[in-house]
């Protein structure tokens, strides 16, 4: 199977992730969309590493995973504090800051 297909898959996953961010209303689901985008990127990095015959892309994927985990923790902490204050994780309910 051609390696290019993995790049297409990664682009599709990235697009799905960004669609989730734009469409869904629940902060946690939005956040899952962001994670999907980051992991799609990881797939692209690993595939390109294979195409270029290097290991760099795989090492990069490790860094991305760690950064994504740190982001998860900060994000969950923020969402959790909002949820505790309002009993809701909907982005639409967070509406004090409308124009």
């Amino acid at each position: 199977m051609s390696l290019v297909n993995y790049i297409y898959l990664s682009a599709i996953l990235f697009a799905i992730g960004s669609a989730v961010v734009l469409v869904r209303r629940n902060a946690i689901v939005v956040f899952m969309g962001v994670e999907l985008m980051l992991n799609a990127t990881n797939l692209a990095f690993v595939t390109f590493a294979r195409m270029n015959g290097q290991l760099d892309g795989q090492a990069i994927a490790l860094f991305v995973m760690v950064v994504a985990a740190a982001e998860v923790v900060v994000g969950l902490a923020i969402i959790m504090s909002i949820y505790r204050a309002r009993r809701s994780a909907s982005v639409d309910d967070a509406n004090l800051l409308k124009l």
């Binding site: 090492a59 490790l62 995973m65 760690v66 985990a69 740190a70 998860v72 923790v73 969950l76 902490a77 959790m80 949820y83 505790r84």
Partner: peptide, 23 residues
């Protein structure tokens, strides 16, 4: 329970750091 999230978050962050230990 929300307490579960705190434990889960701490787990994630310490767990993932160990990724660097493998290479």
């Amino acid at each position: 329970p929300i307490k579960y999230y705190i434990t889960a978050m701490l787990f994630i962050v310490f767990d993932i750091e160990s990724v660097f230990l493998y290479p």
